[in-house]
Design a protein around this nucleic acid. Structure first.
Lengths: 200, 200
DNA sequence: CCCGTTGGCCAACGCTTGTTGACACCGTAG
DNA sequence: CTACGGTGTCAACAAGCGTTGGCCAACGGG
């Protein structure tokens, strides 16, 4: 039906009154998807959180899938590693990953993708996209042998996503307790090794 | 059919004719839960896979939640680490974890718990149980300072579950490609360090 | 042979879901 | 004042869900 979902008003268009509603729906959707996963986050509940009618969700985003796509369409803003000393890559990457989930919105997106990516094909596809388009390129610049970049990037992702999983989603208590400094101290050497070690 | 997982009839009770049906339902349930997660794995679909009526599921397991509980009630059979040389703990633990998902049934249970634990409270609770009752005790025996055992066990879990996540659930291609030997070579030093390093 | 027990099917219930189309409000332009 | 496009509500839909209770078919000990 309406294909206007993914088109943000370009510069110059007046701030429509409905932009606030759109934003409210998106915020509510991210929270619900992050808390409940795709299936249990109902359109009705999201609409209630945003204090509007469920029909508005369909008007603005076409369908529940469209809403999810819009809710997780954010740039991770991964840092450029070109000017990072090779020896500091571990600390920098782990630190940046932790920064991600200190931003309320990005943590919501990350948690939502973790929760949804695990049960919903579209969610899993979106995570593969992010891995391919945003994580792999970084590895390609940092890793000694480019042919090894995919494997090394996958290993790094497994550790970082594993931490997000145990901490944000499964809420293993000792994982939740860990402070930022401890996490960096423990994980940075691991990530560093996955990226730069000449052999396992 | 496969081995009856949950509660083998104790000595003396005759092999009932319905035990086969029970087992078929459990096997189908594990497959569906592993493939689709809790909500999308419908009782009707499971019943169809097992070639019985949905009502049978309720007769045997009381409810969908009861079915799930029965489907994931298995012992991980983690090895006793008392007689493992401290220096080999990394390789042994990673190797055993990989063994887990080479057994068809256990891989099903693991994948099901990952998929369900992420959206379903009961699933998350079950994973916390396993962590507390089966993983933590191992750490307590292997770690230098017992006070650090929970944190170290959580770190180990984050790496192992992260690998399972990227490989079995999200199916990041480079992660899927990794061979068993490569995984052990890369992950064992990480796990070893999380357990025995005196400081990060 | 009879009849209670066991294993199984069927049709239906009450409920929630995503989605839709008709209708009401509002502010501005003509 | 009227007309109208942008906002928003309401009631209803069909589909799918977990769950229930009644009925049927085979079996096996008396």
């Amino acid at each position: 039906m309406s294909k206007d979902t993914a088109a943000p008003p370009p510069s110059g268009s007046p701030a429509r009154r409905s932009d606030a509603t759109r934003a409210a729906i998106l915020a509510a959707a991210r929270e619900r998807f992050a808390a409940d996963g795709y299936d249990r986050a109902t359109v009705r509940a999201i609409a209630q959180d945003a204090r509007i009618d469920p029909a508005m969700v369909m008007r603005y985003f076409g369908s529940k899938e469209g809403l999810f796509a819009a809710a997780v369409a954010v740039d991770l803003r991964l840092p450029d590693v070109a000017d990072v000393p090779v020896g500091s890559l571990g600390r920098v990457l782990v630190g940046h990953f932790l920064d991600l989930w200190e931003d309320d919105e990005l943590r919501g997106v990350l948690t939502a993708m973790l929760r949804v990516g695990v049960t919903n094909p579209a969610g899993a596809a979106r995570m593969q996209e992010i891995f391919r388009d945003q994580v792999l390129p970084i590895a390609l610049r940092a890793v000694p042998d480019p042919a090894q970049a995919p494997a090394r990037a996958a290993l790094v992702s497994s550790q970082l996503l594993g931490l997000a999983l145990t901490r944000l989603v499964l809420r293993f208590e000792p994982a939740v307790r860990l402070g930022r400094g401890e996490i960096v101290d423990w994980l940075a050497p691991t990530v560093q090794r996955y990226i730069t070690a000449t052999e396992p």
